[in-house]
Write a protein that binds this DNA or RNA. Structure first.
Lengths: 255, 255
DNA sequence: GCCACTTTGTGCAAACGTTCACAAGGGCGT
DNA sequence: ACGCCCTTGTGAACGTTTGCACAAAGTGGC
């Protein structure tokens, strides 16, 4: 069990839940910086990010003590610290495989190519698409996966292909040396140990919404003919709510 | 506190974590059905979904006892039960606002329009796009938000607009009666209590990947000049790993 | 009808995540 | 220099989620 020596503060174990929120904080911090705000309190930052302020403070405390008591956090400084922790102070070359609607949307997505990430290439298997230009990149053939990865030292791959092609593309990416994959295809990818896969699934999110929507509107009638309305609000993770409810009945939810 | 009477089994409290996994199980079940598989064991289902089998059983047990001991689960029956629980036995009309690359990708996304969801309309603010056809729908103007929602009884809205337009669109959707929103714009939306918002953020996922990628490759040198390699594998939620590691060094991870 | 085998459903404990509440600490006015 | 006020950072309590391990329950062979 190789323990790292004390190099200052605790870096070895940042909770996964915290990591998932850091990018959100980072975005809010960038927005503050653009507005010319120099310092923010945990309360303000938390409100803008839609989370509890205690949670935000605990999250930030995992990176070190970068705040000033009585004042708050220096925006620029915190931007740097969070970026560094996320590994965004270096540039990550990214390969996008699949130049359909989704691939194109990703290539054109502003926040994608801006801070920390750089699109190395956009690839597609369809000869009709190869050669066309997307977001300043000429689409290359799928046979270019290996050379492109080697040439640009790519370690992050994005799969935006149809479901059927995803596993094959994934295997080739991994064999070529990619160790991080963002998968938009609706399949569960099999990868060797040591490769990190994250999945974004449009329809799953929609189905979760449907569940809550149904929950809110279900009216049940029991054997007495009495009606039980289950229109209860279910507050879930990471969302802000502005006071003054327009929709729905009384909520037990947080203010 | 209105408690519902016992109508058979426990329906009032399905954990959020379980709900988030049900759509995944549902997809795997559909895949089984298409392959002609009549029954599956929790072990098989869990492997295909990339989760622990005990977790899968516990998840399914929240919906009721729909398995047969010694045999497994009847695929068709389970598909029905999960669909019902998620509220997918009814059709949900969905409005997509924003007909850019992402909006088009969503409209064309197969699993989107297929089971449980129906695209009621695609809207956009850009007059140049209005009138064009996307996935069989003529794009309507943003001024049609209210009439479209009223006409089709829409309760789910998808926001695929630029960040700047998202909050405004959101407010209009909510005012028109939409209570569930799937947001692709990189902003935190403010909504009244009783409205459910889920967010899908492409760049956040990428940043989380970057963090793990960095983690894997960081080499630190301490004051002794000794090198500490932190190339430890970090297994995260919901991913399967096939044995026979090609990439990375020895892992403490599960098989 | 009984036994052996398989697989579900669940009690329990540990791990993880969230929230409260407050002590520690820094800035600012006097 | 002192004391007040504000905000961070964190200990402790609480709730949720996970995973083990096993009893309960069904099937099929004999």
């Amino acid at each position: 069990m190789s323990r790292r020596p004390a190099t200052g503060h605790n870096t070895q174990g940042i909770p996964e839940a915290t990591i998932a929120r850091l990018p959100l904080y980072l975005r809010v911090l960038y927005a503050c910086a653009e507005q010319g705000i120099a310092t923010v309190s945990s309360e303000e930052l938390a409100a803008a990010a839609g989370v509890n302020s205690a949670k935000l403070r605990k999250d930030l405390s995992h990176l070190g003590s970068y705040g000033t008591r009585g004042v708050g956090y220096d925006v620029d400084y915190l931007v740097y610290q969070v970026s560094r922790e996320l590994g965004l102070t270096q540039d990550w070359p990214v390969v996008i495989v699949g130049a359909g609607n989704l691939g194109r949307a990703l290539a054109n997505y502003g926040g994608f190519a801006s801070r920390g990430f750089r699109i190395a290439a956009v690839l597609d298997a369809d000869p009709a698409v190869v050669g066309s230009e997307i977001a300043g990149h000429v689409v290359e053939g799928a046979d270019q996966i290996e050379p492109v990865i080697a040439r640009h030292q790519v370690s992050i791959g994005v799969i935006a292909t149809p479901a059927g092609a995803a596993q094959g593309v994934c295997d080739r990416l991994v064999a070529a040396g990619v160790t991080s994959i963002l998968n938009f295809a609706p399949v569960v990818l099999s990868v060797p140990v040591g490769v990190d896969v994250r999945k974004v699934d449009l329809s799953i999110e929609l189905q979760i919404l449907a569940f809550h929507a149904q929950r809110r509107s279900v009216v049940r009638v029991d054997q007495d003919g009495k009606r039980y309305y289950e229109g209860r609000v279910m507050p879930a993770d990471g969302r802000s709510a502005v006071a003054g409810g327009v929709v729905g009945e009384s909520a037990v939810a947080a203010p």
